[in-house]
Design a protein around this nucleic acid. Structure first.
Lengths: 313, 313
DNA sequence: TATATTTGCATAAGTACTTATATAAATACT
DNA sequence: AGTATTTATATAAGTACTTATGCAAATATA
């Protein structure tokens, strides 16, 4: 029995608030499940800043139709989470220009697909023909309460956000080239030999007994890695590259974990890799996964490497 | 520009809360305008207590689907306003039975017609065919913001709640009898002469040059009063009675004010009245309107009076 | 050009919920 | 019967808004 349903329309204010609270709570749970440090009530302000690229407290107040102190509080929360940055206007020293921080942009891109899922789930239970606001509200609240809404989202997350690892197929060959060249170009320079190997993965990696894996999410390829056969049971982990669009999703770590699992399953003796000390983040990850630094041989095949690591099983 | 409208469905939680806040604020304003000491957010709890007649904290929590501390807080607010009373259960000493207080019942009855108006106004802007919750919400919020909702309510209040004073008409004669007899019966006893005068107001009041006024609200008569001619420019204010159904609306004071205004307009010399000291409230009101106590003559026409008051202009 | 007003943002305190926890009485368990 | 658990309510603290107010910079006014 839910008296608010029988109170007639006077209780509408309370009903609206109750449904709002419930929706916010469920959304918060979803962020938490996805390990995303974000609050649903920050969405309007955060999204506004992202869409306007550069804005001010007052402008947010105007477009969101909330009070100015509410905006200030939202901004403080976003600052705390390091998602935005402030800069005082050169001319008008009262004004503070608000922009997304690097982390904010990353989070924004990371959140986008989840928001699409949330958006579709809300639509699923709110877009239908009804004869009154109360009727719409009753139905939506019911779906929030009985778990249908949550279930719909979780299913979508599973099919759309889950990242799976797939083996080399001819149709994916170009990603191997594109991701690696893009990465090489930004950190080093691309040699002709690189282009040759990357454009013919079948010939240079697969046929000599190696493997190429791809991280795939919802029919999109996010990143790739190769295991190049050195000798029986010894493979070089190489050509790891992640699409810049999908940085921040820990795609590299997922590929790394898969390679290690694959090596163990196939009773490999060891894996090794070449890297460069200026790629501190990458080396940190390699260490995290158990790779240990060893001497680089004099006749190292890579000019751009100054460090060699191995993982012995 | 209202970005929340363009945020898609993710902003729905914020939208719902914003509309709730606005609706609550407007409703609060209406209570304030009507001089009613009540808060819209107390409506669910208050209404539940009234409907169930006797209930407990836990039961309210169950039927309203809010948390128990929220109920406790609602109860405390209602206690503060003296609208409810608590009584510990005889057997289970943890339980507190909640009932409306006398004032609570009065307020509940007083609020009923206003709630009807609010209910109809909400329905007016929320009951229509729409293809989504957002569509319903957009329209309703728009009506709240542009003032249409408020205007609708104010118009209805004017036509339904405004109390006007009308002069004697034959069709109202029975009210004069009914209200007065009901009142006399509860405080004194009804003499045969009372019944004679009250049943023939035309003959006993109007024809000798007196007046009878009625308080009328939305085609309903709430109360009555008579000015009985004593001599030229001197009238006895008598037979004031208000329907028990409409106590608490200050109908008596409205009638009193009308009589005084009427007396001034017609250049009366003075008004006087007979009452009884046990009717302390009534006498307080008479004093408030300027009546001053004078000696009761030996041959007072009323057995049930022990006080006489007059207002000289 | 000095003063008043407006503007942009911050701070403080209030509100009506929430979660977490406390307290005391009733009930269940052994 | 004595102890543990459950139940009914209260209290405390947190949250995300609100209103009210403060403050400094910019702009209008005289």
């Amino acid at each position: 029995m839910d008296i608010l349903h029988t109170l007639g329309e006077i209780g509408l204010g309370s009903r609206l608030k109750r449904v709002s609270d419930l929706l916010m709570k469920i959304t918060q749970q979803i962020y938490t499940n996805q390990n995303i440090d974000f609050d649903p009530y920050l969405f309007p302000a955060f999204n506004t800043i992202a869409k306007l690229e550069k804005t001010t407290n007052t402008e947010i107040r105007e477009v969101l139709h909330i009070t100015q102190p509410a905006v200030t509080q939202n901004i403080n929360k976003l600052l705390q989470k390091e998602l935005i940055e402030l800069q005082v206007d050169d001319i008008d020293k009262r004004k503070k220009w608000i922009t997304l921080s690097k982390k904010g942009e990353k989070t924004f891109n990371q959140l986008q697909p989840l928001w699409n899922i949330l958006d579709r789930a809300v639509k699923k239970y709110t877009v239908f023909s009804a004869e009154s606001l109360i009727e719409h509200l009753n139905y939506f609240e019911e779906q929030l309460k009985n778990g249908n809404y949550m279930e719909t989202i979780q299913e979508q997350i599973k099919t759309e956000l889950a990242i799976s690892i797939v083996s080399f197929e001819e149709q994916y060959a170009s990603y191997f080239y594109d991701f690696n060249v893009e990465w090489l170009e930004s950190f080093f320079y691309v040699e002709d030999y690189d282009r040759e190997v990357l454009s013919k993965p079948q010939q240079y990696i697969i046929e000599p007994g190696g493997h190429i894996f791809y991280a795939k999410q919802n029919n999109e390829i996010l990143g790739t890695v190769a295991l190049l056969k050195n000798k029986e049971g010894v493979f070089e982990l190489t050509k790891m590259a992640v699409s810049p669009k999908h940085q921040g999703k820990k795609v590299g770590q997922l590929l790394m974990q898969y390679c290690i699992d694959f090596a163990k399953e196939n009773s490999f003796e060891k894996l090794f890799l070449y890297s460069h000390t200026k790629l501190a983040n990458a080396i940190y990850i390699y260490r995290k996964y158990g790779f240990i630094e060893i001497d680089v041989e004099a006749d190292s095949p890579y000019e751009r490497s100054d460090i060699k690591m191995e993982l012995v099983f």
